[in-house]
């Protein structure tokens, strides 16, 4: 398993390099100028100076190579320095946002926790409600519970989050006033009252995302459990005198989870994409909002870096899915 993991990590490197190049070029081709915010009264020489100061006047390949060096070498050094108080980076040039002129990783460090709190909680809750619903729906196929589950899953899956999100805001925040409409990024949990405030502001976005995730994962779970319930080994377990609980929750579940775990692991990075929309609706100042803001002003270093981090996450969770697959299914041996 270890050698498999190392091998997969090594093969991920060329993949990621290629992805980074494609992202870099695509973003670079997009129309828009980093100076679109600058008033037209600013004379062209000054504009040129500003471009040079950002490094935006350089050819794209030069900027790409510089960015590569910064992303894979300089930024990790800054990370180590920040952790251990060392000084490996020695003031080397970091990836700087054209818009705010601060290091992109500093922006990510500020924004990512907001996103992770909401997305992570939502995903966890989504999985936790999806599994029992999926299992029970399959076990009682065509029961009213299963029918209701099917209906809500179809609805949850086909109604976009921007619709459910706005609907919930309208009902619970605007009309009923139970929850705030705006997510306060600066809120820190220090005591019981602030904890309750945190829960209140997380409630709506987490509900929207959790329901969306639960809809998908419960369907996968259901069909996987259903498939396994018909297998011969289930009959064997019953013929041995095992109770229904053991038959379903041990024999069937362990087999059914193999594909579900893959879907859950692969789904996690795509949730960040979905979170971009949700963050806009609920005014959460997270990484998705940062990305949208950067796109609007052609802040290329920020867009490129954040997009590439999403790509890294996808590759990483692919690997995690493969490893979990191997742990759950003894028939799969990697070495």
């Amino acid at each position: 398993m270890l050698s498999f993991t190392i091998r997969r990590l090594l093969t991920a490197i060329p993949t990621l390099l290629l992805i980074s190049l494609v992202i870099f070029l695509l973003v670079d081709l997009a129309p828009g100028s980093p100076l679109s915010d600058v008033p037209l009264t600013v004379p062209p020489e000054v504009r040129q100076k500003m471009l040079e100061a950002m490094g935006a006047d350089q050819p794209v390949m030069v900027r790409y190579l510089l960015w590569l060096k910064q992303f894979f070498w300089i930024e990790p050094l800054y990370g180590i320095d920040a952790l251990f108080g060392t000084d490996f980076a020695q003031g080397a040039q970091r990836i700087i946002s054209w818009q705010s002129k601060v290091p992109v990783f500093q922006i990510i460090g500020e924004r990512l926790p907001q996103t992770l709190t909401v997305v992570g909680t939502a995903y966890l809750i989504g999985v936790l409600i999806a599994l029992p619903i999926g299992i029970y729906s399959a076990y009682r196929q065509y029961s009213w519970f299963d029918q209701a589950g099917t209906f809500f899953a179809m609805a949850g899956f086909s109604v976009p989050t921007f619709f459910t999100g706005n609907l919930l805001i309208l009902i619970f925040a605007v009309n009923l006033g139970w929850f705030p409409t705006i997510y306060d990024t600066n809120l820190e949990v220090v005591d019981w009252a602030s904890f309750k405030e945190m829960l209140a502001q997380m409630a709506l976005p987490v509900t929207v995302l959790a329901l969306f995730n639960a809809a998908e994962i419960s369907r996968y779970t259901r069909s996987s459990v259903l498939e396994n319930l018909g297998q011969d080994y289930v009959r064997t377990a019953r013929a041995k005198g095992m109770g229904e609980g053991r038959v379903v929750l041990k024999h069937v579940l362990r087999n059914s989870l193999i594909p579900v775990v893959t879907v859950v692991a692969l789904g996690l990075p795509t949730v960040f994409g979905g979170a971009i929309v949700t963050e806009q609706i609920f005014k959460i100042n997270g990484i998705g909002a940062a990305l949208i803001g950067a796109i609007n002003v052609s802040d290329l270093p920020t867009v490129q870096t954040v997009t590439f981090i999403f790509a890294v996450l996808i590759v990483l969770f692919n690997l995690i899915a493969d490893i979990l697959y191997g742990i759950l299914d003894p028939r799969i041996r990697y070495d």
Partner: peptide, 27 residues
Amino acid sequence: PRDLQAVRGAKVGFVFQDPMTSLNPVF
């Protein structure tokens, strides 16, 4: 159902046709 479970596998053993699929692959 409970009493019947106590009979299955204890008083009556069952061997099925297809040994390739009758055992649980993950245990």
